[in-house]
Design a protein around this nucleic acid. Structure first.
Lengths: 234, 234
DNA sequence: TTGGATTTGTGCGTATGTATA
DNA sequence: CTATACATACGCACAAATCCA
C-alpha cells in the first residue's frame, strides 16, 4: 500500500486507541515526519486523508488538532461506503425483491451514460438495520462493466464484490438528496403510511477511470435517515 | 492571491468560456505546467480545487477530464456558501423575524462549544427565492467572535459581513441532514400544511482557527430543497 | 504592543511508481 | 510490450498565520 495511507491508518489507530487522549494537538509536522520517517509531502498527504474523514483539522501557524467525534449512526455523504460498511457495528441484512437483466432504455442510458440497448442489471433491495426496514434501493449496473451479478451477491454486498472480486476501483459519486412523499408500495415495504415523507438519494457512481457503472435511487425511512457531510471553504 | 488559486480560477474561466468545448480532456499536466509557468505541485493544487468543485476528474495514466455540469438549482453540501452565493443567478431576499442577544444556556453552549452564559446572537430569518418561501433559519452566533450583528446585516448577508467586514476566515462546517414534520409556525412561514415534511439541516460552522462561531438549524421547503454532494472514495 | 519564534501553507524541482492506451 | 500520463515520494526554501515572551 502507498506510504501516506499506511501513515494515515497508523495515525488513526493511535488516535482511536487513545495515544493522544490527553491532548487536542498532534505533534508538529516536523516531529511526525521524524516519527514516521517520511517526507513532508507524504506526511501532508496522510493528514489530508484524516482531515477529509473529519478526524483532524489544521490551523496554520498553530498545529494539527483532533476533532470531537461526529454524531454516531449517520450516513456519511462525502464518502463512498457500502451499506454494510456504513453500519458495521449494527446488525444489517438485505432482501432482494427483484434482480433482472434488461436493456437500457432512454432514461437508464442517460443515467448510466451509456448507449440505449446496453445490457444492464436492475436490482431492487430492501435494507434492514436491526431488523427494521431502513431503505429501499432501485439500482442499475452496466453489464459491460459488471459482467455478472447474482442474487447471492446482492444479498451480501455488491460493492464488496465489485472491489474485491472484480477488482475494480471505485472513484467518485454524484449524490442528490431530496424529500418525496412515499408511494403505496414503498410505504408498505418501509411499514409506513402512504404519503408519509421519505429521504431520497439519487447517486451516479463512477469508477476511477471515469466510467459510470451504477445508478441508484434509494428511498430512506425518514424516521431513521440522518446524513452527515463535512463542508470545506474553498 | 496564492498562485494555485489564480491558476484554478483562470482554468475554470477558460473551461466555462468554452476553450475546451470540443474536447473532454485537458492538456497534460506537463503541458499545463508550461502553459501557466508553474511547478508541478502548484498545478496539482489548482487541479485539486477544480476536482473538489466537481469540474474535473483525473484518471491515472490517461488524463484530466472535464465533467458534465451538475444538476442546476441544487445546494452544494460540500462547500460553505452563503444563501446569496448559492442562488446568485436567482432573485432572493430575506425577512428577519427576530434578532436578539441572549446568554447561552446548556443547549446553546453545547452547540457553540462555548461556556454557559456566553453572550450570543439569535437570528430567525425566512429566506425567499423568486419570492417563494424557501427556508427558515434559526441561527446562533458567538458574540465573543462576532461582536456585532444587526438587522441591517441579517437582511443582506451575514457571511459576507463576517468574511469581508470582520475579515474572519471561515474554515469548515459539520452538516447533518434529516427529515422532520413541520411545526404549525414553520408551516405557516413556508405556506405549507402542518405536518407536511421538511428537509432539515443542522450546521456547526468553524473558523479557520477551529473555533465554532455559528450554529444553525434550517428548515427547508421540501418541494424546492435539493442537495448535491460529491463523494470521494478514500 | 511588538517582534521574534514556532508551525502550517505554498512553491519549486526531480525521481520513481503505477495505471492506461 | 512500449510509451504516455497521472500518482507518490523526497527535500528544500520561503510565505503566512499564530503564539508568546
Amino acid at each position: 500500500m502507498r506510504k501516506y495511507r499506511l501513515v494515515a491508518d497508523q495515525l488513526l489507530e493511535e488516535i482511536t486507541h487513545g495515544k493522544y487522549k490527553n491532548e487536542l494537538r498532534l505533534p508538529t509536522e516536523e516531529d511526525l515526519i521524524v516519527a514516521y520517517s517520511v517526507s513532508k509531502s507524504t506526511l501532508r498527504n496522510a493528514i489530508d486523508v484524516l482531515v477529509d474523514k473529519s478526524i483532524l483539522y489544521r490551523v496554520q501557524g498553530s498545529g494539527i488538532y483532533i476533532r470531537k467525534p461526529i454524531y454516531p449512526d449517520t450516513i456519511t455523504i462525502n464518502s463512498i461506503k457500502g451499506f454494510k460498511e456504513e453500519f458495521k457495528n449494527k446488525k444489517i441484512h438485505s432482501k432482494v425483491i427483484k434482480l433482472e437483466q434488461v436493456e437500457a432504455d432512454a432514461e437508464i442510458s442517460f443515467k448510466l451514460q451509456c448507449e440505449i440497448g446496453t445490457p444492464v442489471y436492475f436490482v431492487n433491495r430492501i435494507r434492514y438495520v436491526e431488523n427494521e426496514p431502513f431503505s429501499i434501493e432501485y439500482s442499475y449496473f452496466n453489464k459491460n462493466i459488471i459482467p455478472y451479478l447474482g442474487k447471492e451477491i446482492a444479498e451480501k454486498s455488491i460493492y464488496n464484490y465489485i472491489e474485491n472480486d472484480l477488482n475494480l476501483s471505485i472513484g467518485f459519486a454524484d449524490k442528490y438528496i431530496s424529500v418525496e412523499k412515499l408511494s403505496k408500495i414503498d410505504s408498505d415495504h418501509l411499514q409506513l403510511n402512504e404519503s408519509d415523507p421519505s429521504m431520497v438519494t439519487e447517486e451516479t457512481v463512477f469508477l476511477s477511470n471515469g466510467k459510470v457503472f451504477n445508478h441508484s435511487k434509494v428511498i430512506h425511512n425518514y424516521k431513521y435517515a440522518k446524513f452527515f457531510a463535512l463542508a470545506k471553504n474553498r
